[in-house]
Amino acid sequence: MRLLRFAAGRLAGMILVLLIVSILTYAVFYLLPADPAQLSCGKPCTPQRLADARAFMGYDAPWWRQYLDFLGGIFAGRSFGSGSAVVRCAAPCFGYSFRLDAPVSTLIASHIGVTFSLAAGAAVLWLVLGVSAGTVSAVRRGSLLDRTVMTASIAGVSAPAYLVGLLGILLFGFTLDMVPVGGYVPLAENPVQWAWHLILPWCVLAFLSAALYARLTRGQMLEILGEDYIRTARAKGLGERRVIGRHALRNVLVPVVTVFGMDLGGLLGGAVITERVFSMQGLGALLMDAVGNVDLPLLVGVTLFAAFLIVLANFAVDLLYGVLDPRISL
């Protein structure tokens, strides 16, 4: 019951946050010094044609009016134009991209697979890699292995992702010709090719993020290994493997999961570089495309969706935190 009330409260907060994010996004991008109608006016453009295009796309109304239309579309759907050329966007309508001739929700649906594949694979890899490296490092504190892992991880934390990604492509893709240098094969089409095309981005992302997790795990592990109940467990004569695996690791995972949830949300929402570097067309690429082409509805829709993912991840983490760690009062 307590958990339920907590969840309801957080849910309400979540919706409020999304509302604010959407208003801010709308306002900021409305102020951009570019007129989407002008960009789709054609060549040569005349003032009359410009006005017609603007009216058709609904850009002739003041920004708050456009925002309200947008909100209304989510519940009631929208239609643009009139006569036999009417373009409908069924509820829930998160906007309609005239440049790509599709509702924003359709576009998000068709791009999310790439981003999700990228994020999920990398996350598994970095979580396993990071947590195990961190654990080993903590257990063998001060050893050569520990120092190597920590040096590698601080280098990983310090390296910019775009640089590592591009060097990875040049080295493994072109010079050694070992892995594909971009492109995406859907999982349903060919699972082997799917994984093969994703292997390089996974490794790059995992290398960079695992560093952070290794350091986090090591720090937490050291802290926990010093606590009483571990000493008790050891005193009881439990094997070291069991002490670490059963008792320590479980407690280390609480903060790791927190960071992980937020990272995953951020990764899904802002896979902008990775996708660009590896020529993959996920949500990040869609977003950059929208920015470059001043595709306002797409921009707002994707930004909002990304924010939704981040907020959702935070929400899940909050819940999980409450469940995993009874010391946290909800």
Binding site: S40, T46, R49
Partner: peptide, 13 residues
């Protein structure tokens, strides 16, 4: 049609 603007339109004038 304004619904289909964006192309080369030299003929329009």
């Amino acid at each position: 049609a304004p619904e289909l603007s964006g192309g080369l339109g030299y003929h329009k004038t």
